[in-house]
Simulated scan of single mutants.
Amino acid sequence: MTPVAIVTGASSGIGAATARRLAAEGFHVLAAARRTDRLAELVERIAADGGTATGVACDVTSDEAVAGLAATAQAAPGPVTLLVNNAGGARGLDPVESGSVADWQWMYDVNVLGTLRVTKALLPALEASGAGTVVIVSSTAGFTVYEGGGGYTAAKHAQTAVAGTLRLELCGRPVRVVEIDPGMVRTDEFAMVRFAGDADRAAAVYEGVAEPLVADDVADCIAWCATRPQHVNVDRLVVRPLAQAAQHKVHRG
């Protein structure tokens, strides 16, 4: 039977690229996101490329929506062997002293509690497959803080803690836990969401950087980790563009 991969936040960016790549690797992909119109386009593109996928409307901040995703997984055409917790995001770049509680709450709910909800709901199916993998897409912000990033780095540090804790708790059971930590990735939406649609501020993030990572680069890393032999667990993969030596060290031409 065809193995099934579930990807959250699949309507754009890293999630969409990962869904396409996993379909090319032979998975039937359950592409989950809020924007069903984009999911329909993604499913069509995957089909045109010779793969198979199903779009599933899912908001990871909703218990009911996540339960619906789990129900869809039960009717999938094969065993659920891979979950990619990709849904997430950043809002704002305010210092702690003037940080928006609403923005911090949103970042924690999407990045951390979203990962918790989806992982809890899908773990039984992953374990039942006998060869499950949970991928958590965190960030280099999960282990390095920076000015103005308190809310996002706090959420990503928490997500990293979830990954490490889950790996300990699943020891001896047939489910791997992989953490992917990208640095600077240029996607269509990440910086735009962070700066509430301010295109100039979003563009400034990447100004002068010749080749930031793109979504396909991160999808390649996820697919590589997920397709290693089952006894091989890539605990953490950190990936940055050549121009970024560290969080604060970026070459700009």
Rank of each mutant, 00 (worst) to 15 (best):
T140S: 03
G51M: 00
P79D: 09
V145R: 14
T36C: 01
E25N: 14
G149E: 04
V185E: 03
R228Y: 06
W104V: 14
G183N: 05
V80E: 03
A24H: 11
V238G: 06
G55N: 07
V66D: 02
W104Q: 07
S62Y: 08
G99S: 13
R34M: 02
V80C: 12
Q230S: 15
F143N: 13
R194W: 08
V4K: 03
S12D: 05
G89A: 06
L242A: 07
G26C: 09
T153I: 10
G68L: 07
G151P: 06
A40T: 13
G88C: 05
S12Y: 04
R167H: 08
H28N: 14
Q230I: 13
R38K: 09
G132S: 02
A40W: 02
H248I: 04
P77S: 12
G253K: 14
V238K: 13
R91T: 11
V185G: 00
A131V: 05
S62E: 05
V232L: 11
T119K: 09
T72R: 15
D59R: 10
R173M: 02
S100E: 08
E25D: 11
C221Y: 06
M192D: 01
G26P: 02
V238D: 10
Q105Y: 08
C58T: 07
V205F: 08
L168T: 15
A141K: 05
D198K: 12
A24P: 00
E169W: 02
A5L: 09
H231Q: 15
D220G: 09
R186S: 00
A17N: 00
A199S: 14
R176A: 09
L166K: 04
N233Q: 15
V96E: 12
N233M: 11
P241F: 00
S138A: 15
V218G: 04
P229G: 08
A67M: 11
E97M: 05
L123G: 04
V214M: 03
R35N: 04
A131H: 15
Q247R: 08
P174M: 09
H251C: 04
V56H: 06
D59C: 07
V205S: 00
G9K: 08
A57M: 08
P182M: 06
A24L: 04
A245E: 02
G148D: 00
V162R: 14
A161R: 10
L170D: 02
A226H: 15
Q74A: 14
G15Q: 01
L93I: 03
A23W: 08
V145Q: 09
G183T: 06
V101T: 14
